[in-house]
Every structure is written in C-alpha cells, then in structure tokens.
C-alpha cells in the first residue's frame, strides 16, 4: 500500500515538474510581457501544487506544512502577477502585434497624458 502511495506521489512530483517546464518554455515563447506573466502565473501555481501534493504522499507527516505552503502560494502567486501586470501596463510595456482590442488604454487615454 505504501509503495502504491509512493508511486502516486512520485508521479505527481514529475507532473508538477512538467508544468514548471512548460512554464519555462512559455516564458520564452510568448511574444509580450503580458503573455509571459500569464504563463508564469498559471503554470507555476499548478506545478507547485502538484509537487506539494506529491511530497505529501511521499512524506505524510509533512502534509500539514506542505498544505500551508500551498495555501500561501495559491493566494500570493496570482496577486504578485496582477501587481506586475498592472505595472507593465502603466509603464506601457510593448504589446504583441497580434493584440486585437485594448479597452484599458481606451479608458485611460486622458489620464496617461495628464501624467506625462
């Protein structure tokens, strides 16, 4: 039974690592800062949660602390990405040429000129 749980835990670890790898890949493939922030926010959150779950299967006595780390990351990871994305937008970071609509700049056209 423990051997079985170990295998499941190990597979979760590998799965999490694969998502981190996808994150690293996406970071290099996405054409603009916003795409990169998206990739960074999503893949690292799921990747870490899978790794933490796997670690919990392999070392059940660590489960409580792993859970705490998971809850913390689940809350802070998207938050830091949002703050970063807002900074990028306010700094007028270059956008991918494919960008279709930009309601944000439409709404903030006057204010950004005031600031300049």
């Amino acid at each position: 039974m423990t051997a079985f749980l170990d295998i499941i835990g190990g597979l979760a670890l590998v799965g999490g690592a694969v998502f981190l790898l996808l994150g690293g890949l996406g970071l290099n493939r996405m054409p603009d800062s916003f795409g990169r922030i998206q990739v960074g926010a999503k893949t690292t959150t799921l990747g870490t949660i899978l790794v933490l779950t796997g670690a919990g299967f392999l070392q059940p006595d660590m489960a409580l602390k792993l859970f705490l780390i998971g809850v913390f990351l689940l809350f802070t990871n998207p938050l830091s990405s949002q703050v970063l994305a807002r900074a990028a937008k306010r700094m007028h970071a270059p956008e991918a040429p494919e960008t279709v609509v930009d309601k944000y700049s439409e709404d903030h056209a006057e204010t950004s000129e005031d600031e300049a």
Partner: peptide
C-alpha cells in the same frame, strides 16, 4: 478551471504556430 487553464496554455505553448489572439477587455 486551473487544470483547464494549464492544459490550454500547454497546447498554445507547444504548438509551433503559437495560436494567440490577445487583447485587453473590460
């Protein structure tokens, strides 16, 4: 939804043509 988000993103990142159509909505 988190799972779906990652799988969809994986598909985008792994396809050679990088099928994105980005924009900012309200």
């Amino acid at each position: 939804e988190l799972m779906k988000a990652n799988l969809r993103l994986a598909k985008i990142v792994l396809s050679p043509s990088l099928p994105i159509n980005p924009g900012f909505v309200k």
